[in-house]
């Protein structure tokens, strides 16, 4: 893990991404300390613009937008990381098993993976959520986890295939190590960067999709989350009546969290794939050319 952490710290995108995520996590954890308002109850007059009392104004029914924002961060983060973890675990396990075992097992898993990939995800989620009724964040996280692993499984399988024929795997097989041990302790550690990319990507996907499902009216009205904030604001026609704070607050929150996670994702991608890196080398090279110390 040492070198990975060191390369992350040296990568500017990773550092900015990590700071953004850390700030949001801190604010979410400290939410009750940062505001005295209950996010769910009516604490002011409807649709008040931002003021000293209500930093980000109030909603149509007089809830405090700031309080809903920082409490809602908890939901977005919990669903994002929970579903992201589930998606990654399923995708990684299926991908490694398919790639390593090969044969019939691979055929079956690959067939299902490809099938899940061509059934459009959001419409499928909409049907599932519609039958469940008003889906709580937990339910949303679970159905996301069970429907969205296919991309990760496909990528992990491809990567497993390339690791499988390496010498250290062959020697572990010769020594009679059981298959599950080879998969967990020999193959998995070599896929760590692809698993990392899959995890961060899945967290982004889960956060976006949770917000989308709730925005489309499939969430539980009692939930305090960024998606429900969007839904309520849109239902209250916040933009038409000029209550921009009501709708733009969750918008920017989602955007900033998404950007933070994406920066981290791109950074991990660059570290895993050295060809994509530009960074210091290139700027040193350019400087040397400019100062006439060499040419091409």
């Amino acid at each position: 893990m040492g070198p990975l952490v060191r390369s992350l710290i040296r990568n500017r995108k990773a550092v900015v991404g990590l700071i953004i995520i850390a700030l949001i996590v801190l604010i979410a954890l400290a939410a009750p300390l940062l505001t005295e308002y209950n996010p769910a109850s009516r604490v002011g007059r409807p649709h008040q613009p931002p003021s000293a009392d209500h930093w980000l104004g109030t909603t149509r029914i007089g809830q405090d937008v700031f309080s809903r924002l920082i409490h809602g961060a908890r939901t977005s983060l919990a669903v994002g990381f929970g579903a992201g973890l589930l998606i990654t675990v399923l995708g990684t396990a299926l991908g490694i098993i398919a790639g390593y075992r090969g044969g019939k097992t691979d055929e079956v898993i690959s067939f299902f993976t490809n099938m899940v990939l061509v059934v459009p995800n959001l419409p499928l989620l909409l049907v599932l959520a519609a039958f469940i009724g008003q889906a709580s964040p937990l339910v949303i996280a679970i159905i996301l986890g069970f429907t969205s692993w296919a991309w990760g499984a496909r990528v992990t399988r491809a990567e497993t295939l390339s690791v499988k024929h390496k010498d250290f795997i062959k020697s572990a097989e010769m020594m009679g190590e059981p298959r599950w041990r080879i998969m967990t302790f020999e193959i998995f550690p070599n896929l760590i960067s692809i698993v990392g990319i899959n995890f961060i990507g899945s967290v982004i996907f889960a956060i976006i999709t949770e917000a989308t499902l709730e925005f489309l009216g499939l969430g539980d009205p009692k939930t305090v989350s960024w998606g429900m904030m969007l839904y309520n604001a849109q239902k209250a026609s916040a933009l038409s009546v000029g209550a921009w704070w009501d709708i733009l607050t969750p918008c920017f929150a989602l955007a900033i969290l998404g950007i933070g996670l994406s920066l981290l994702n791109f950074a991990v991608d660059e570290i895993a794939n050295p060809r994509l890196r530009t960074g210091n080398r290139l700027s040193r090279w350019t400087a040397l050319i400019r100062s006439g110390e060499g040419r091409l």
Binding site: K13, I204, I207, I208, A211, T212, F215, L230, Q234, L239, I247, L248, P250, C251, F252, L254, A255, G258, I259, L261, S262, L263, F266
Partner: peptide, 13 residues
């Protein structure tokens, strides 16, 4: 990075 990480809902709004 910015464009892809922001949900479509948010961009449209």
């Amino acid at each position: 990075i910015f464009a892809t990480s922001v949900p479509a809902v948010v961009t449209s709004l």
